[in-house]
Amino acid sequence: MLVRLKIFRYDPEKDEKPYYQAYEVEADSMDRLLDCLNRIRWEQDPTFSFRMSCGHGVCGSDGMRINGICGLACQQLVRGFKGEVLIEPLPVFRVIKDLVVDLDPFFEKYSSIRPYLITKSSPPDTERRQSPEQHSQFEEALRCILCACCTASCPVNQNQETKDYVGPAALVRAFRYLFDSRDEGEEERINLLDQKQMVWGCQTLWKCTEVCPKEIPITNQIGQIKRRIYEKKHGR
């Protein structure tokens, strides 16, 4: 089948501003959108740049905006598209070249929520115990592959006035550690997250949950963090 695409292009060395370029690619019915993009750069236009690695939705490299919605190019089969497919970089982040965006701020925000287990007591000789029920409290958050689709889709992050919001991805990881029964850093986590640009930046707009390629119930998890903060502050 013939796939028609309109792709956002920008080369900082020579372009004053971005432009859109049309391409046509012959595709097999089982091809991923990623396969089309690769065919374009391998056979037609080698100047076209985008990130990719695993090709099956576990590494998080190929996040982009497809027909206006953020997602992973490797997870979308071409047969799901009718008409021209619009391909653009993830919003919110500075475009470096074509679909490659600057994710340093994303990883910095991720770092800022103390994304590692905080323990104060000495570990036992063997494993710390944790029940299957305790494990399932935060298990869905483990699916996160840091693809940035959620943060790129968040209207709060997209708005210039509120762009300092730490963003849904960082909060998913914060949730993962806050709700891990083995973590002993609840007090410092609560203090850290109980800030305007931290958890209170979330306006419950659900865009993150809608786009997450790993089906993580992000808005719900952020809500659970808010409730935990409230419980701690008001002793309920």
Binding site: E127, S131, Q134, D180
Partner: peptide
Amino acid sequence: VIYELEHMGVPFNRTPDGKI
């Protein structure tokens, strides 16, 4: 290795009595 990973925070699946 496994216990060290678990102490670092790796979230292994658990048995009913809480072991890895």
